[in-house]
Amino acid sequence: MSHTFEPQVIDAVLAHMNGDHTEDNLVIARANGHPDATSATMTGLDGDAGVWSVTDPAGEHELRITWPGGPISERPEIRREVVVVFEAAAAALGLPPREH
């Protein structure tokens, strides 16, 4: 059974991703099956995966990406896994790596 994070944790992550990382969400969507995505919004997460709502010319789709490091249960692990998902997506699209 997947770990469920507290609603306030999920809300904070979603607010951060959708407020500060809108372009990152789009990179993630484009590299994970939606190359023509025009928008992407993170809509949820649990211990197994992150979930995005993606819009492309064909309509709206749900994109669920399993955490690369396996199931998680602690808040700090969310950031780590989202960063890995983004970095893999950027590399798949040939984008230069970000400096941390």
Rank of each mutant, 00 (worst) to 15 (best):
residue 29 A to Y: 02
residue 4 T to C: 10
residue 31 A to S: 03
residue 95 L to Q: 11
residue 73 S to K: 12
residue 69 G to T: 11
residue 22 T to A: 15
residue 12 A to P: 01
residue 63 L to R: 01
residue 3 H to T: 15
residue 95 L to V: 10
residue 97 P to I: 07
residue 43 T to S: 05
residue 43 T to L: 03
residue 67 W to R: 00
residue 77 E to I: 09
residue 93 L to W: 09
residue 76 P to D: 08
residue 10 I to E: 06
residue 16 H to F: 08
residue 6 E to V: 10
residue 20 D to I: 10
residue 79 R to E: 12
residue 32 N to P: 04
residue 78 I to T: 03
residue 54 V to I: 11
residue 58 A to E: 12
residue 2 S to K: 15
residue 28 I to T: 02
residue 38 T to N: 06
residue 43 T to I: 10
residue 85 V to K: 00
residue 16 H to N: 14
residue 60 E to M: 12
residue 80 R to P: 05
residue 2 S to L: 14
residue 26 L to V: 10
residue 44 G to D: 03
residue 8 Q to S: 15
residue 68 P to N: 05
residue 55 T to E: 11
residue 15 A to G: 07
residue 16 H to G: 13
residue 36 D to P: 06
residue 70 G to I: 12
residue 82 V to C: 08
residue 4 T to M: 13
residue 1 M to R: 14
residue 22 T to I: 15
residue 84 V to N: 14
residue 90 A to Q: 11
residue 47 G to L: 08
residue 96 P to D: 08
residue 63 L to I: 03
residue 59 G to Q: 12
residue 97 P to W: 06
residue 48 D to I: 08
residue 28 I to N: 01
residue 88 A to L: 13
residue 98 R to Q: 15
residue 42 M to Y: 01
residue 54 V to E: 01
residue 10 I to S: 06
residue 34 H to C: 06
residue 97 P to R: 12
residue 99 E to T: 12
residue 33 G to D: 05
residue 40 A to F: 02
residue 96 P to L: 09
residue 97 P to C: 06
residue 30 R to I: 11
residue 35 P to N: 10
residue 45 L to S: 03
residue 13 V to M: 09
residue 26 L to R: 05
residue 61 H to R: 05
residue 30 R to Q: 10
residue 52 W to T: 02
residue 33 G to L: 07
residue 60 E to F: 07
residue 72 I to T: 01
residue 78 I to W: 00
residue 87 E to N: 15
residue 51 V to M: 09
residue 68 P to H: 04
residue 50 G to N: 02
residue 71 P to C: 15
residue 73 S to F: 12
residue 22 T to N: 11
residue 38 T to W: 03
residue 24 D to G: 05
residue 46 D to W: 07
residue 57 P to F: 11
residue 91 A to G: 11
residue 18 N to K: 04
residue 91 A to C: 08
residue 49 A to Y: 04
residue 32 N to K: 10
residue 9 V to S: 12
residue 18 N to V: 09
residue 90 A to L: 11
residue 66 T to P: 02
residue 55 T to C: 08
residue 36 D to L: 14
